[in-house]
Simulated scan of single mutants.
Amino acid sequence: MALPVIDSYPMPDRSALPRSHVSWRIDPARAALLVHDMQNHFVGAFPAGRSPVVELVENIAALRALAGTLGMPVVFSAEPAGQPPGQRGLVADMWGPGIRDESDGAAIVAPLTPRSGEHVLANVRHNAFLRSHLGRLLRSKGRDQLIICGVYAHLGVLLTAADAFMNDIQPFVVADAVADFSAEEHTLALRWAARSGVVCVTDGLLRALLLHREQKKA
C-alpha cells in the first residue's frame, strides 16, 4: 500500500478540540519536543502551499523555536531510507519498501532542518519509542512530558502518545501541528489522544510555556 494522495483540508481550531481527561500543565523544565516523521517522503503527500501542510510546518517551527529558547530538548524521529526486509518487517506488507536510498525523501523538510544540539532518532516503526532510545534520552534529560507534533496523526503520533502514557510520560498532542490522510482521520486521532493525554493547539501551548517561565522568574 502506497501513501495516499491527500486532499487539502482545514486545520482544526480550538473549538474543535476534544476534552482531555487530565489537567496536566506543561512545564518547560519537564518537557521535550518530538517532531515526528517530518520528512520529504511523508510531507510530500500533502498538497503544497495549502492547508493543512502550511500550518503544520509553521506551527512546528514556532514550537521548535520556543523550545530552543527555553532550553527544552528537541528530538526528530525519522524513518531511515533503504531499510532491508529484515528490518522493515510487517510494515513492508502494509506500506511497501518505504523510503528509497536514491531519493531525498528521508531528509527532514527544509524549514525544519535539524540544528546542532538537536537530536535525530531513527525510527523503524510508527511508534517513535519502539526500537529507539527515545525513552532513554528523555530519562537522561529528566523529562517526563512530551510535546508531540508531525505526521501522521492516526499512526505515528497517536501510537507514540499512547506509549508515552504507558511509560508515565505525559503526552501533549498539538492538534494544529499534526496532520493526517484526511480531516476525518485527523479528528479521530485527536479523540483517541485525549484519552491518554492533553490535546492542545499551538498558540495556547506557546502561551502556557511562556507563562510558566515568567512565573518561575517572579
Score class of each variant (00 low, 15 high):
57 V>D: 03
58 E>N: 05
60 I>L: 04
60 I>K: 04
62 A>F: 00
64 R>F: 05
65 A>Y: 02
67 A>Y: 02
69 T>N: 02
73 P>A: 11
75 V>P: 09
75 V>F: 02
77 S>I: 00
79 E>F: 04
81 A>E: 08
81 A>R: 00
83 Q>L: 09
86 G>Q: 01
93 D>H: 04
96 G>W: 04
97 P>Y: 01
99 I>W: 03
101 D>S: 10
101 D>A: 01
103 S>N: 07
103 S>Y: 10
105 G>Y: 00
106 A>C: 08
107 A>P: 05
111 P>H: 00
112 L>T: 02
112 L>N: 05
114 P>V: 15
117 G>A: 14
117 G>N: 15
119 H>Q: 12
120 V>P: 08
120 V>T: 12
125 R>E: 14
127 N>C: 12
131 R>F: 10
132 S>W: 06
132 S>M: 13
133 H>W: 11
134 L>W: 05
135 G>S: 12
135 G>D: 15
137 L>G: 06
137 L>K: 07
137 L>D: 12
139 R>S: 14
140 S>H: 15
140 S>T: 09
142 G>Y: 14
143 R>D: 15
146 L>I: 11
150 G>A: 07
151 V>M: 15
152 Y>L: 06
153 A>P: 10
158 L>S: 14
158 L>K: 09
161 A>Y: 13
162 A>S: 11
163 D>Y: 11
163 D>I: 08
